[in-house]
Write a protein that binds this DNA or RNA. Sequence first.
DNA 1: TATGAATGAGAGTTCATTCAT
DNA 2: GATGAATGAACTCTCATTCAT
Lengths: 207, 207, 207, 207
Amino acid sequence: MPTNSKKTTANPAHGRRRELLATAAEVFATQGYNATTVRRIADEAGLLAGSLYYHFDSKESMLDEILSGFLDELWTGYDAVLDAGLGPRETIEALVTESFREIDRHRAAVAIYQKESRHLVTQPRFGYLVDSQRKFEKAWLGTLERGVADGSFRADLDIRLAYRFVRDTVWVAASWYRPGGTHSPEEIARQYLSMVLDGIAGREPAA
Amino acid sequence: MPTNSKKTTANPAHGRRRELLATAAEVFATQGYNATTVRRIADEAGLLAGSLYYHFDSKESMLDEILSGFLDELWTGYDAVLDAGLGPRETIEALVTESFREIDRHRAAVAIYQKESRHLVTQPRFGYLVDSQRKFEKAWLGTLERGVADGSFRADLDIRLAYRFVRDTVWVAASWYRPGGTHSPEEIARQYLSMVLDGIAGREPAA
Amino acid sequence: MPTNSKKTTANPAHGRRRELLATAAEVFATQGYNATTVRRIADEAGLLAGSLYYHFDSKESMLDEILSGFLDELWTGYDAVLDAGLGPRETIEALVTESFREIDRHRAAVAIYQKESRHLVTQPRFGYLVDSQRKFEKAWLGTLERGVADGSFRADLDIRLAYRFVRDTVWVAASWYRPGGTHSPEEIARQYLSMVLDGIAGREPAA
Amino acid sequence: MPTNSKKTTANPAHGRRRELLATAAEVFATQGYNATTVRRIADEAGLLAGSLYYHFDSKESMLDEILSGFLDELWTGYDAVLDAGLGPRETIEALVTESFREIDRHRAAVAIYQKESRHLVTQPRFGYLVDSQRKFEKAWLGTLERGVADGSFRADLDIRLAYRFVRDTVWVAASWYRPGGTHSPEEIARQYLSMVLDGIAGREPAA
DNA sequence: TATGAATGAGAGTTCATTCAT
DNA sequence: GATGAATGAACTCTCATTCAT
């Protein structure tokens, strides 16, 4: 028996789990959770449907592991930003950049989250989604409010509307983003920030 | 002769169909198409599952009718805007406003479209979704290009990115919009346009 | 109000019934009883499925009326032959000829009978099918036995086998017979009788 | 080492399929394909309806496998006869004998074929039925024609009528034949051939 | 670890039948 | 006589899950 079995990559068993979860996430993202059969995941992974149950309790537990894994990493990044003591504008910039990085690394999980979270939040098992949403909203709303207060952001904003605007604008990108494309996540973040912060209108309006 | 005989309710047969489609759309939007059972729709409509098949060929044909009905109305509005000979900026403003009006009138259909269109486009039956998407892209991209050319929009925009930005930004609103709320569609459109066109940053950056 | 309404064709109501039964018989024969939907019959007859229930109690009662109507006419013809006091060979000839006449007049009913009688006989409602079969077997077997006894038929016949041979040979013709073709029923009967009685082999065997 | 390892039971997976197909064939033959529920087959086989779908794609694919399996074996036998270079009369004798052997081995499949082929031929999936029918007709008609030409068969025959006569006469036997009865297939074939070739009439007509 | 076979609940759909109008 | 709408039972089929091997 291995002595350091708690490490992630060191454990071959964990390696297999990850592979299977990655496969499952890809299929969930493409077809939707409900429309995905356990058989399809197994096919894609090269084993039989029943064999997946050696690794996971249920289809739902795969989904759970995918989403919670993603959220854990997301909050590691977000918390680092929020704890850095940046100004409102720089915080928004950092959060948006971090978000695109997460989309880059967890595209499938993000896509699943977008499609499925609305009805998952009603299930006790996925209570952490509600917690995450609340924390998320608090972080963004708070930053926007601070920014309006100190003049970083326009005073005439409907804050809740602006929050939804920025939030959706960023995350929906997961629906079309393909890792390894021409733009790096940071590059996309920069362009998005440019549009969100300064708008798309020309400085000198057309005659 | 009645003065209001041109209204939809004049045809009782079509009235029932509409009611049932509205019910189905609501459930599809809430639970997702795949996760929605025909029995659930029937329950909600107050009849038995089998009875729905007197009115519709299949669950899929309900979805079809909902989406095509929505797109028909959408394009009536869009075409009116596109044929009006407006400048690029005014066109974008009119399209965004029209979009929020459609979200107001077809909230469920829009939500369904957002969630399901990605895999529906692969089915021949829903080929019109592809057509619509192409036409949609052409209208928005073209307007943005014209606007960059005449200085209405910033010259340094990545046009495709800007297109996705505006497109998603508007339509995702269907996921949280509730008709009859405090903001009218036109009011929301105005605020969105303000953010999209001029950004959320303050004019005088914070010290 | 008509004074002689008890006659068959005189009563317009009966006329409608007959039309509908003829339509139903045609569809039953083509598709099989089970595979035929009441809606299909109604379509073919130019009314709605529910409306058939003004004329008939049930789908099964249509089948019943078709089969019993056919058997009534069949036995009128058969009884006339059997009561005519003919010799065995002439009796067989007359029965076969009469059978082809019935196939000509009741093709659909005969086809239905062939396909469905086997499982219908188990239902009490169709008990008359069993009676008819018994009477049928008695008539044919008896005639064959008489014929063997008086030398009309070969002495080395397995009578039961010969009975099945003649019976099937005749009635299966309903599966390909089309009224109004080049051969009259009497002509077909003559050719069949020639084969059944004298065989298809050449008189002088080929070297 | 087992001496009979070449038998079908050597492959356990195929063994189960065969069992299930045999059960299905029996029920289809008895009740008719349409009237047979998948549940009934499952009951008869001792498992649940859904479990059948582990082995077969659909009810229709069971039917398909039953019929194509039967036709494959039938044509193996027929082709051997047709390739043997026999004279017309001997060919007919061999084909009839082979047919009764097939009825003996595939009674259920033959009965199903008789009842269902007429509407199955319209479905593309069962196109091979049409092919088989054409080949069948060609083989029998050709043999009869050759026989008329060389005097083996009567010159005054309507060939098509004779073809149908022989064809039906043989295959309808599947509707009453029960394997393991008093007559072997070869014995029945001999008696049938005697009737078909030489007729049932006595040599010396009754005075 | 993985397979092959089965389970059982529930899905979408069909259809004979009913009945108020 | 016929329609339009609905019923309710049954059907074929799907699928997450289990378990002996």
